[in-house]
C-alpha cells in the first residue's frame, strides 16, 4: 500500500465533510474519485496531502503513519519536519495549476528538487528537460507561466510534481479550469502516465476519462464513499441508487 487512509473524519465549522472514510491505494493503481460538488472528494485529497488536517483517523504512506488517532480520539500528526519527509512521497496537481509566476518553466521544475531534495543542478536540469520533452513542451523551458496556455501550464504543473519523483500523484480536478478544447492534452498526459504504471488518484468530472483510465472508481456523496469498484462495474452496473442518479446526469 502506498497510501492508506483509515476512518478519516473531518469537520468544517461543525459540518461533517468526511464521515469515517477509509481507502487505500496500491502501487501502480489509478483511482478516480467522482461525485457531486460538495461530496467531500476534494477535501479527501487535501487531507491526504496535509493541506487540511483531519479530526480523526489515520493516514499512512508506505506503511508509515503520518497521522493517527490518539487515546482521546483526536488525530495527532508527526512533527513538521517529519511531515516534510512524507511530502516527498506524493505530488499534487491543482485545479488552478499554481505555478510560480516569477520562475521560468525550467526553474519551476528544478527549484524544488534542488532546494528541497538537494539534488545537483545537472541532475535537476536533466530530469526537468526529460519531463518537458515527455509533456511535449520542451520548447517552453525558458518561457514564463503567463506566456503559456492553460493546458500547457497544467502540463508544466504535472511535470513540476513529477520532478520530485513521488510515489503517488494526486490530481484535484486537473481539467476543471481549462477551456474544453484544452482538456484533451492534459488528459492525454495523465493517460500516458497511467500506461507507465504511475500510481495516481484523480478527482475528476471527466466521466469518460475516469472510465477509460482508472483501475478503480470511487463514487463519493455526502462525505462517504457510496460505491467503489472497477470502472465497468461502477459505470456499467451501479448498485446504489445515488450512483445511478449521479451518473444519469452525465448520460443525458
Amino acid at each position: 500500500m502506498i497510501l492508506q487512509m483509515s476512518n478519516i473524519r473531518k469537520q468544517f465549522d461543525g459540518l461533517e465533510v468526511l464521515k469515517d472514510i477509509s481507502f487505500g491505494v496500491d502501487s501502480g493503481e489509478v483511482v478516480s474519485i467522482i461525485g457531486p460538488s460538495g461530496s467531500g472528494k476534494s477535501t479527501l485529497l487535501r487531507c491526504a496531502t496535509f493541506l487540511e488536517t483531519i479530526d480523526g483517523g489515520e493516514i499512512r504512506y508506505m506503511g508509515e503513519a503520518a497521522a493517527r488517532t490518539d487515546a482521546s480520539g483526536h488525530a495527532v500528526y508527526v512533527s513538521h519536519s517529519e511531515l516534510r519527509r512524507f511530502r516527498s512521497y506524493y505530488g499534487l496537481v491543482f485545479q488552478q495549476f499554481n505555478l510560480f509566476p516569477h520562475f521560468s518553466i525550467l526553474r519551476n521544475l528544478t527549484d524544488a528538487p534542488m532546494e528541497v531534495q538537494h539534488r545537483s543542478r545537472e541532475e535537476a536540469m536533466e530530469t526537468a528537460m526529460d519531463l518537458l520533452r515527455k509533456m511535449g513542451i520542451e520548447d517552453k523551458a525558458d518561457a514564463y507561466p503567463y506566456q503559456l496556455s492553460g493546458g500547457q501550464q497544467q502540463r508544466v504543473a504535472i511535470a513540476r510534481a513529477l520532478a520530485l519523483k513521488p510515489e503517488i500523484l494526486f490530481f484535484d480536478e486537473p481539467t476543471s479550469a481549462l477551456d474544453p478544447e484544452l482538456t484533451g492534452e492534459v488528459l492525454k498526459v495523465i493517460r500516458q502516465l497511467a500506461e507507465e504504471n504511475m500510481t495516481m488518484v484523480v478527482v475528476t468530472h471527466e466521466m469518460s476519462f475516469a472510465r477509460a483510465v482508472s483501475n478503480r472508481v470511487l463514487f463519493m456523496d455526502g462525505g462517504v464513499i457510496v460505491e467503489q469498484g472497477s470502472p465497468e462495474d461502477v459505470f456499467g452496473n451501479p448498485q446504489e441508487e445515488r450512483t445511478r442518479r449521479f451518473l444519469s446526469v452525465f448520460e443525458r
Binding site: 496531502t49 496535509f50 493541506l51 516534510r84 511530502r87 516527498s88 506524493y90 505530488g91 499534487l92 491543482f94 488552478q96 499554481n98 505555478l99 510560480f100 509566476p101 516569477h102 527549484d111 524544488a112 532546494e115 528541497v116 531534495q117 513540476r160 510534481a161 520530485l164
Partner: peptide, 29 residues
C-alpha cells in the same frame, strides 16, 4: 493567492523557503 503557499507546501519547501523564494519576490513586484 493562497495557491502559491499550498503549491510550495506540497513541494516540500519550509515556511522560510516559501516566504523567501516564492512569496517575497512576488510581493516586491
Amino acid at each position: 493567492p493562497v495557491g502559491q503557499y499550498e503549491a510550495a507546501e506540497v513541494l516540500g519547501y519550509t515556511p522560510t523557503q516559501t516566504f523567501m523564494r516564492i512569496i517575497l519576490p512576488q510581493v516586491i513586484k
